[in-house]
Design a protein around this nucleic acid. Sequence first.
DNA 1: TATTGTTATACTCTATAACTATA
DNA 2: TATAGTTATAGAGTATAACAATA
Lengths: 158, 158
Amino acid sequence: MRPRLPEELVASTTFLLKRLGFSAKEQAMKAYEQTGLHPYHHAILIVLAEGSRETQGAIADALGYDRGQLVGLLDELEERDLVERRRDPSDRRRHLVRLTPDGEKMLRRLRTLSAEIEDGFLSPLSDKERATLHGLLFRLAEEHDPRCGPIGAPGLTV
Amino acid sequence: MRPRLPEELVASTTFLLKRLGFSAKEQAMKAYEQTGLHPYHHAILIVLAEGSRETQGAIADALGYDRGQLVGLLDELEERDLVERRRDPSDRRRHLVRLTPDGEKMLRRLRTLSAEIEDGFLSPLSDKERATLHGLLFRLAEEHDPRCGPIGAPGLTV
DNA sequence: TATTGTTATACTCTATAACTATA
DNA sequence: TATAGTTATAGAGTATAACAATA
């Protein structure tokens, strides 16, 4: 007999969310192996490409990473010359981090890879269904991860 | 300035899945603390309540748990008299596991708790939207976690 | 005294595989 | 020899907090 999950679990949306989140993470980790980087590194490069957050604290806060954890991730990116750290002359406690040309090249590669993973993961769904799913997940994320929310967060504007 | 995630990340459905799966897990773990059990224990009790899978191997396979990990979880359930293990007389290598009356009572309590968590997590969505979301996630889960799939899995029937 | 980045520590999970008792 | 359950071990990942430099 083929192992099957109890109906009761599959009927739970949060159960499916947990399982799919885990699957998505696992697939991504596997696919990223070929680059020698983690999805975490990719997220950091994306923040740097935006240009507005350059200090380590700002990067960590933007992504919700622990600052101690970020140090090691940046060390790995720096070792491969994908980012540069230099002291902020106006506040010598700070490090200003920026992408190198190699970092920008790697970011383009990771964007392509990430798009492929996403497309594969969502392959059972039509374009319209994908848009619907994204909209619903976004509404949940606004509620459960304030970092996803709109500029004027509801309840904070009053 | 309020920390915000890059648009590029929020635009990714798999990114939102990963984040929301993590949030859902975190919320559930927190809520389950009052019971002294994990969602893992709950899932085991659900499998046992179905009645068709009674050996430890069958339970582990149904949920996708490692058999070594399951031992510890069952130890904890047994310590609290929520399940019973006894040798299978027809194959003395096996343990037959079953719910005790206390276990059934606890399962009812966990079902209530779980329904409350789910309702709270999905609170931004209408009933219709929740149904749509569940349907889309289920289609993805069929693809990415075969245990969720229908009895006759596509591609395996031929 | 508070903050930035760094380092060290410890704790949780998980994955692996060795071990026993039965078949 | 293979299987069911158990136990032990090591590894990754994460969280915590101590620390040095600077404000």
